[in-house]
Design a protein around this nucleic acid. Structure first.
Length: 627
DNA sequence: GAGTTTGAAACT
DNA sequence: CAGTTTCAAACTC
């Protein structure tokens, strides 16, 4: 144990320093995060040393890195710890319940290893930690901080519910008490804690303290997207009034299977629906502090309201407190958060001023609109003409760049990975760096980068971020959508603040979360920090290149997603050729990489699910571990 | 609390 | 892919 502590101490000393987390605690976090048994955890110590641990664990690292990047800072004093890597839209419960599971839970070595290695490879960024702690310093009380922290995760986990009103937390005094206590009944915390409340709030939209209303499914067994719990990636819990519910830890396999099935239809079915674009302004514009405009958040798929005029909660946009956008097919939109038509007008104006001719989009037939939008990274920042990359006459090319090779993958935040196939080349172990690598012949990324400031780069990067992350092997493997998901898991944009250009080695953030505790400015630091860990994340992914990425013959196909307007992330054009040469892509070392973002933290039945007593859970776990 | 309305999800 | 059905939440009374 002490050894692990030391290791973690090494891995993230800053975490302990900045966030008042003892290495012990950090270690606990890891343990609980991995849901490992003591013995498992013990063995992890050694695995931890073996950073060459391969394969899928590397995918997990993405997520687990998130966890490590966030947890220590975010959950410092609380007993709330996080994550076990999982699939897209993992059960939110797992965030919360990880701690309790840590003592008796079962976890695959994979997961544990992943987390372990993550802790050693990705948590070396002092700045990263600092960023987060900085962010939390803004919160006056520890409890408040916790709230925000929880929201941060929860936000990304549950469709950016706070899009418009940043953090609107719903925490009962009791909950607060529990949360400030280090040794309270965690199950209590979890079942009544902020995370749950936050979610319940979504469901109930109550402001009177009743935050416990949840689903009420009768026929779907809570295994369809009709079920809000299921859709949000959490298990049903006590407050639910569902009947014949299968969305419970006991039925984990069923749940996973169902999710897999649904994801096979629509890989991004569990991705956040609300896109909170990060609107990065060039430095000159940043001073207004208006980097993020909540009002610019949009529903990815858009609503389809006919009668409610987007003024009732029938409307998903309205319900999420976001305005309607061009992607909506609503009629008579009067969305108080932003009418569709206003959106169009604004957008057009923005486009005009930005020389990005997109006004025609509005006149296009729907399909084209979608395509256009999907290809337009700006699309997601409708009300904030932010990403008007500083010119130098490059806008046109940039916009062209961004609009060509995109994938009309509606639901995805991420989608647009034009999964450029690059033959797995020697040097292109960078192939992890994936996708957006480009050869100079096709895209002079250097000049491209020169044309945009770092901030613009960040903005672009951010545009690429809002994506759920695939990750849970158990979900990924064998899933029809697994490839796409793997891709998404690997996608990232990596920016090197020093060179102010796109480079390999980067960090992970949850950009799908509206409340990311990381500022772009801090990104700077963070990235620097991560640079030192270059061998970390970057390398980590190296060996786990999904076949799809290795397969050069693979045609570029958009991930099929059921909805017409997902957030698009538009990689530079000609992506299909980008990786085609091992020597081509960004030889200069600048890489243009999509960065995946987990829609929410990992799955695994953790929460005190409805009707599942500790006993039953323990039995369940016991059975699993026996398996 | 029952019944109705609504629009997303699922199905054909 | 469009049309239809099913579903559960939102809403109304």
């Amino acid at each position: 144990m002490s050894r692990r502590c030391l290791q973690f101490g090494e891995a993230q000393p800053e975490a302990t320093a900045t966030c008042s987390i003892s290495t012990n605690r950090a270690n606990n976090i890891i343990s609980s995060t991995s849901l490992a048994t003591n013995s498992e955890t013990e063995s992890l110590s050694s695995s931890h040393l073996d950073l060459s641990a391969k394969s899928r664990t590397r995918q997990l690292v993405n997520l687990s890195q998130l966890a490590m990047n966030m947890i220590p800072q975010c959950y410092g004093k609380s007993s709330l710890t996080v994550l076990k890597p999982s699939g897209i839209g993992l059960h939110l419960n797992s965030i919360v319940n990880a701690t309790s599971m840590g003592q008796g839970g079962t976890a695959s070595m994979k997961v544990a290893q992943a987390i372990k290695s993550t802790s050693t490879t990705s948590c070396q960024s002092t700045e990263n930690i600092d960023n987060c702690s900085d962010a939390f310093e803004k919160v006056s009380t520890p409890q408040g901080a916790l709230e925000q922290k929880v929201c941060t995760i929860a936000g990304s986990a549950s469709e950016s519910l706070f899009a418009e009103e940043s953090v609107e937390f719903h925490m009962t005094p009791n909950t607060k008490r529990k949360f400030s206590s280090e040794d309270g009944d965690r199950n209590d915390i979890l079942s009544s804690g902020p995370l749950m409340c936050f979610y319940r709030k979504k469901l109930s939209n109550n402001t009177d303290g009743d935050c416990c209303k949840r689903c009420n499914c009768k026929k779907t067994k809570c295994l369809k997207l009709y079920c809000d719990c299921f859709a949000a990636g959490i298990y049903c819990a006590e407050p639910c009034s569902c009947q014949g519910c299968f969305n419970r830890p006991e039925y984990e396999e069923t749940v996973l299977e169902t999710r897999k099935q649904i994801e096979s239809r629509n890989p991004l079915a569990f991705a956040p629906k609300i896109v909170q674009p990060v609107t990065e302004f060039p430095l000159s514009n940043r001073e207004d502090g208006n980097r993020k405009t909540p009002s610019s958040a949009r529903h990815k798929r858009g609503c389809n309201c006919k009668r409610s005029m987007c003024l009732k909660k029938y409307c998903e946009c309205y319900q999420a407190n976001v305005g309607c956008s061009i992607g909506c097919r609503c009629e008579g939109c009067k969305n108080v958060y932003g009418k569709k038509e206003d959106y169009c007008v604004t957008k057009e104006m923005v486009n005009r001023s930005g020389e990005i001719s997109e006004s025609r989009v509005a006149a296009k037939p729907k399909k084209e609109i979608f395509h256009s939008e999907l290809c337009d990274p700006y699309h997601l920042t409708p009300l904030t003409p932010s990403v008007q990359c500083s010119d130098h006459g490059k806008n046109a090319s940039i916009s062209r760049l961004l609009s060509r090779r995109c994938l009309p993958s509606p639901e995805s935040d991420l989608t647009v990975l034009s999964y450029a196939k690059s033959p797995r080349s020697p040097r292109t172990s960078d192939s992890n760096d994936i996708l957006l690598e480009t050869s100079k012949g096709n895209l002079d990324i250097d000049s491209f980068c020169e044309g945009i400031s770092y901030n613009n780069a960040v903005a672009l990067a951010d545009e690429f971020h809002c994506t759920p992350l695939p990750n849970h092997p158990s979900v990924i493997i064998g899933s029809p959508s697994s490839k796409a998901r793997e891709l998404t898991s690997l996608s990232r944009v990596q920016l090197d603040p020093r060179s102010r250009s796109l480079t390999p080695g980067g960090s992970l953030h949850w950009h799908s979360s509206p409340i990311m505790p990381m500022s772009p400015l801090n990104d700077n630091k963070k990235l620097q920090g991560l640079d030192s860990a270059d061998g970390g994340l970057y390398d980590i992914l190296e060996d786990d290149m999904p076949e799809i990425l290795k397969d050069t013959s693979m045609p570029i196909k958009p991930v099929k997603a059921g909805s017409p307007n997902g957030k698009r992330v538009s990689p530079p054009h000609n992506l299909h050729q980008l990786g085609s040469s091992s020597s081509g892509p960004l030889r200069s070392g600048r890489k243009f990489i999509l960065k995946a973002v987990p829609s929410f933290p990992p799955l695994t039945p953790c929460i005190d699910a409805k009707g599942s007593s500790n006993q039953s859970r323990n039995n369940f776990q016991e059975n699993r571990s026996n398996d």
